[in-house]
C-alpha cells in the first residue's frame, strides 16, 4: 500500500500526515485530526452523517480518499460557529426548533444545511427537503429540521425567526 504526504486545512488549522492511499477522509478527520464531531453512519454515502465542506461544498467524507483532499480547506461541525465564538444561526435554529434528538446525524445535517442556505438564502420548504435529502435522520421525522433551517435562513436575512416558524420553544 503506497503512502502519501498530505496537508489538509481543517477549520483553519493545517493537519499534515503521511497516509495510506486508501485512508478515507472521514477517518483522517476523526483519527488523524481528532475532530470526532464528524460521524460515520453507513460508510456507503447513504446517510450523510459524515458530511463536511470541502472548499465550501458539502461532501460525504466517507466516500472520499484523504489524498483527494490534499491541499483543501475543510470545514467540519467544529468549525461552524461564528468567528466570535457565538453559535452559527443553524446551531441556534436546531436547538430552538428541536431539530435533533440523538444528535448523531446533526453534524452532517448542519454542514449540508449551511451550504444550502449560503447558496439559497430564502429556500422554500420543498427546497430544504430536497436539499437535505442526502442526509438521513431516524429520530426527528425531519419536520423540525426543516424548521431549524428556516429559522437560520430567516435569522441570517435579518428576519425574526419566530415570525417564520412555529415551534413550542418560540411561542410567547
Amino acid at each position: 500500500m503506497s503512502t502519501h504526504n498530505v496537508t489538509i486545512s481543517i477549520n483553519g488549522t493545517p493537519v499534515s500526515a503521511n497516509v495510506p492511499a486508501r485512508l478515507l477522509l472521514v477517518h483522517f478527520i476523526r483519527e488523524n485530526a481528532g475532530q470526532t464531531g464528524t460521524h460515520c453512519g453507513c460508510d456507503t454515502t447513504s446517510c450523510g452523517a459524515c458530511t463536511v465542506q470541502i472548499n465550501g461544498t458539502p461532501v460525504k467524507s466517507c466516500t472520499v480518499l484523504t489524498v483527494q483532499a490534499d491541499g483543501a480547506e475543510l470545514t467540519t461541525v467544529e468549525g461552524l460557529a461564528n468567528k466570535d465564538g457565538s453559535l452559527h444561526a443553524l446551531q441556534e435554529g436546531f436547538t430552538s426548533c428541536h431539530g435533533l434528538h440523538c444528535g448523531f446525524c446533526t453534524p452532517g445535517m448542519l454542514m449540508t444545511s449551511a451550504a444550502l442556505i449560503k447558496e439559497n438564502p430564502d429556500p422554500t420548504e420543498d427546497e430544504i427537503r430536497w436539499g437535505i435529502s442526502g442526509n438521513l435522520c431516524r429520530c426527528t421525522g425531519y419536520n423540525n429540521i426543516v424548521k431549524s433551517v428556516q429559522y437560520a435562513a430567516a435569522k441570517l436575512r435579518g428576519v425574526d425567526p419566530s415570525t417564520v416558524v412555529d415551534v413550542p420553544s418560540l411561542r410567547k
Binding site: 470526532t36 460515520c40 461541525v77 467544529e78 436547538t95 448523531f104
Partner: peptide, 21 residues
C-alpha cells in the same frame, strides 16, 4: 415548559461522545 434541551449544547457543536469517539 418547552425549555431548550440541555444536551443539545454538545451535540450541535460536534462534542457528543459516541462509542466510536
Amino acid at each position: 415548559s418547552s425549555m431548550k434541551r440541555k444536551e443539545d449544547v454538545r451535540f450541535i457543536q460536534g462534542k457528543g461522545r459516541y462509542i466510536e469517539d
